[in-house]
């Protein structure tokens, strides 16, 4: 008796649609494509990076963009000893909350490092760009220790 053919279908977990990113998120992503990082001023003057459309405290619509530095400081981090398949690095790395120079709020990204011991709270890091920037958060390929 011949083996029955097994029906199978590839399944990708994720957003399988595109949508416009609007004037705030869109501006940030467009600037990434040009290898610039911009934040936005909150109601109380704090610079939020990546920019948010509305102030989380006052709900005020935000619109004042500010260019920030491409270097910053690690506010906190998690050392990933066993990277998952979906993770951006196959080698052990750190997820980090990074406060860029000129920003008042940390952003989440990842830090490449040869070992956990080299990473610390307060350490300085610098953005490294993808060869081909497309207007995605992943245009920042990673941060590297300075």
């Amino acid at each position: 008796m011949s083996q029955p053919e097994i029906l199978n279908q590839a399944f990708e977990l994720g957003f399988t649609y595109t949508r416009s990113t609007g004037p705030v998120v869109g501006r940030f992503l467009t600037e990434l494509k040009k290898r610039n990082i911009v934040g936005i001023k909150a109601s109380d003057g704090r610079v939020i990076v990546p920019p948010m459309e509305y102030d989380p405290d006052t709900a005020e619509e935000l619109s004042e963009f500010v260019e920030v530095g491409q270097e910053g400081e690690i506010i906190s981090f998690a050392w990933v000893k066993h990277p998952r398949e979906a993770h951006p690095s196959e080698r052990p790395f750190a997820w980090a909350m990074i406060k860029l120079d000129g920003a008042d709020v940390p952003m989440v990204h990842w830090v490449a490092s040869d070992s956990e011991e080299l990473v610390s709270t307060g350490a300085r890091v610098k953005a490294t760009w993808s060869d081909d920037t497309k207007g995605y958060i992943t245009d920042i390929a990673c941060f590297e220790l300075v």
């Binding site: 957003f15 990113t21 998120v25 992503l29 990546p50 906190s76 981090f77 998690a78 050392w79 990933v80 998952r84 979906a86 993770h87 951006p88 997820w95 980090a96 909350m97 952003m107 989440v108 990204h109 990842w110 995605y136 958060i137 992943t138």
Partner: peptide, 18 residues
């Protein structure tokens, strides 16, 4: 969906930073 999900940052890592 724009700043975090595309990085696939997992919930355990976020809690570890906390």
């Amino acid at each position: 969906p724009y700043y975090l999900a595309p990085q696939w940052v997992d919930t355990i890592s976020l809690a570890a930073m906390q």
